[in-house]
Structures are given as structure tokens and as C-alpha cells.
Amino acid sequence: MVNTKVTLSGIPLDNPIIPASGTFGYGYEFAELYDINMLGSFSFKGTTREARFGNPTPRIAECTGGMINSVGLQNPGIEKVIREELPKMRKVFHKPVIANISGFSVEEYAFCSEKIDKEDQVGIIEVNVSCPNVHHGGMSFGTSPEAAAEVTRAVKAVTTKPVYIKLSPNVTDIAAIAKACEEAGADGISLINTLMGMRIDLKTGKPIIANKMGGFSGSAIFPVAVRMVYQVYEAVKIPIIGMGGVSSAEDVLEMMLAGATAVQIGAANLVEPFACKNIIESLPHVMKKYGITDLNDIIGGAHK
């Protein structure tokens, strides 16, 4: 027997596998395919104060080893998420969920986080200061240590649950930003969000994505994500949720060796709807193959 249980800020997870926000909706589509209660947890679609339709289409472009998305935080708004989606989610998922919160001002982050903090279904609040697809918000809070710390402080002041700050890779020094969040009281760090990317259609000579640029994700970004998780692990003591291009149990182990306590799966869910199930089921076998009996033994193992 191997142990796949890990703990994030006191919250026990049966395994470290967590579908990433924006790739799993509210879980309903996947709950039709398999029992999603096998997941460690899941991070539901990014939520803002107001309802948002998001960006114009096309929002999706193919890339080698990945894809670009520019959805732009489409969501029904915090009130409707609490009133309608959380009760529906409770029917298909019985473990604590991760609430992903986005905003266009420090006040909005605090407003949404304070509301969602009162929901008993929510285990962790994941504050997204890294959405590349909205203007005057999102990523602009995650590209300087001061701004990221300000959001962290504002959210921590009005919440009781663990707060994880989800960081952007589109920065010069991610370790400094992670450290600033830790000093401002963050309970953990999630990384990485998508890399800014663009594709141009040779037939039209114009960008494929209506919003021109979008977030690049998929297996192609995995080495960037591993490197950044490694760097952040050296800089902070709080737990890390690692993500970015993870698509196999081997990738999960690599991410944990770099320093992640839990691992999110993003784009893989979209092209392989059973990705998380397959990873969870193969994890014990792959652990055995590498002589790992307890996942907790390998967290940050690459640093030793």
C-alpha cells in the first residue's frame, strides 16, 4: 500500500489531484462521466463580483503541445454562484472545494472572498491575481510584489479560511512575488497560471483570438511550471499547489519533487475528460515504480 494523502493548510486530501479553475466548470460535466469524489478537491470557475459574459469569440487557438484561451472570466457573479451553483455542486461533490476568486480592484477581491468565506463547502480560497485575459484587473495585481501583497492583506483581513494566491508566470521574479504574498499573510501559493501567448492565422494575417492575446496552457508549459514551483519553494515556507501542463502521474511526482504539496490539472481535462481519473488511478503504480511509499516524502525532494 502506498499513501497518496496530503494535507493543505490542515485540510486533508485523499490525493493531491485537483482540477484547475476554468477547466472543470462547476464539475457537472465531469460528474456525468465519473464519480468526481475521487478527486482531492477541485477549483471551480473563477468568480467575480458582477456577472461577466467574458471576451468575444474566437476564444480558443491550437498550439503545439497546448492551447491558448481567452475566455475572460465568464461567470454568473458571486451572488449567483453562492445561491445556485454551490448547492448544485454539493450534490455532485461532497468534499471541500476550492473557490477561485478574481477581481478588478482590491475591494472586489475582498468583497468576493468575504462572501465565499462564509460557505461551509469552501475549504480554500484561491485568489487569482493572474488572469491574463482581462484588462485593468486580474494579472495586473500579480505582476508586482506590492500589488499582490495588498490583495493578500485585504483578503486575509476579511476571511477565516486558508487563502492561496494564484500567481502569474508572466513576471520577472516570481519568487519575490510569492514571498511578498507570504509576508502579507497568504496561507499558500498556487502557480502557474497561463503564459501570455498569441497565434496568427496565415489565411487572414490576423490574430486567431478575438482579444488578440490569451493564456497559453497545456503540456508544452510544464517545464516552465516545474522551474517556477522550484523557485517559489526555495523562497517561501507556505505550501504550494503546483500546476501548468500536468497531464500524467509522472508529471504529478515531478511537480511534487519541485516543491508542490498538491497538483492542479488544467488543459488536460479539456482534451482528455478522464485525465484526472486516469492520473489518480495510475498514481499508486507510478509511485511503486519509483519506490515511493508516501507522497509526503517527496514534496520538495529535488531541493535536498
Binding site: 477547466t23 457537472y28 467574458g54 476564444r59 480558443i60 484561451n69 475566455v71 465568464q74 486567431i208
Partner: peptide
């Protein structure tokens, strides 16, 4: 429409 998943998860093809 250009789609990410094709089964309703990603909101890539909303109108």
C-alpha cells in the same frame, strides 16, 4: 465555433 473541450467545461465557445 472554435472549441476548447466540446462538452461544456471551458466556456471557450460561448455566445
Amino acid at each position: 465555433e472554435r472549441m476548447g473541450c466540446g462538452f461544456g467545461a471551458c466556456m471557450g465557445c460561448s455566445c
